[in-house]
Amino acid sequence: MSYQTFYSLHIYSYVIWLLAFAGSLLLASKVREETDVHRKRQYIRYERLITNIGAHLAALGILISGGGMVSLEEGPRWGWFDFQEHTWLAVKQLFFVLILVCIGFSIKRSRALKREIRNFDQVMNDRISQKWSSAYRMSLLVYMLVLMNTFLGFVKPF
């Protein structure tokens, strides 16, 4: 595979992540507005689905493509951990490690929400709302870190 292929996968993964963020924001607003129990539960499921598929698969794509880009001889020579010349890359990688840790917590919270929804199949109770809020807040943290990471990738400030 060529550097350009990995680079394209890297960019597409970020775009997917940012689109998942936009979709998550839209569905979260619908969850908060909705008064019908069944629709609210459906919006919660869609929001979690977008986050789980879009954001988590995008993280995997970035992990694979980033490793591929630095492993090839062609393209810019960022190196695996040559951060003295590229301080912005070191900060970006630290953000990405933090993102991966937060994704782990997000997955854990999503699973707890899924169990709660399964246990109370036709009911929308406060526990489901609290569990969704908890999972959503963790997702928002991940999305904010992704925005900062994306900014560092575009600007390369230091």
Rank of each mutant, 00 (worst) to 15 (best):
Y136C: 05
S110P: 04
N125G: 14
F81C: 11
M144L: 12
F151W: 13
R77L: 09
G23H: 06
A135I: 00
F96L: 01
A135R: 01
V97E: 11
E34S: 15
I107D: 01
R77E: 07
V91M: 09
Y136S: 08
G54Y: 05
N125Q: 06
L147F: 08
M148Q: 06
M144V: 09
W132P: 05
Q42S: 15
S106D: 09
A28S: 10
A22N: 00
F158K: 12
E116S: 15
I53N: 08
A55V: 13
L63F: 11
G23K: 10
W88H: 14
F95L: 14
Y12M: 09
F21G: 05
I64Y: 01
R41P: 04
Y12E: 00
L72Q: 12
V146L: 13
R109F: 13
W80F: 14
A20F: 01
K131I: 04
V101K: 06
N149R: 03
T5G: 03
R32H: 10
V142Q: 00
G104H: 00
I99S: 00
S24W: 02
A22T: 11
F105Q: 04
F95C: 10
E47L: 08
L49G: 09
F105C: 00
L94K: 11
F81Y: 10
H86C: 05
N119H: 12
L147P: 07
R48Q: 13
W80I: 14
Q4G: 06
H56D: 01
M138P: 01
Y43A: 09
L26N: 05
E74V: 05
S110Q: 11
T87A: 11
S133H: 09
M1L: 11
I99P: 01
S2Y: 10
W17L: 06
T51S: 09
L60C: 07
A22F: 07
P157N: 04
F6Y: 14
A58M: 03
H56V: 02
R32S: 10
N52R: 14
K30I: 08
Q4H: 12
V37M: 09
D126G: 00
K40V: 01
Y3K: 01
W88E: 11
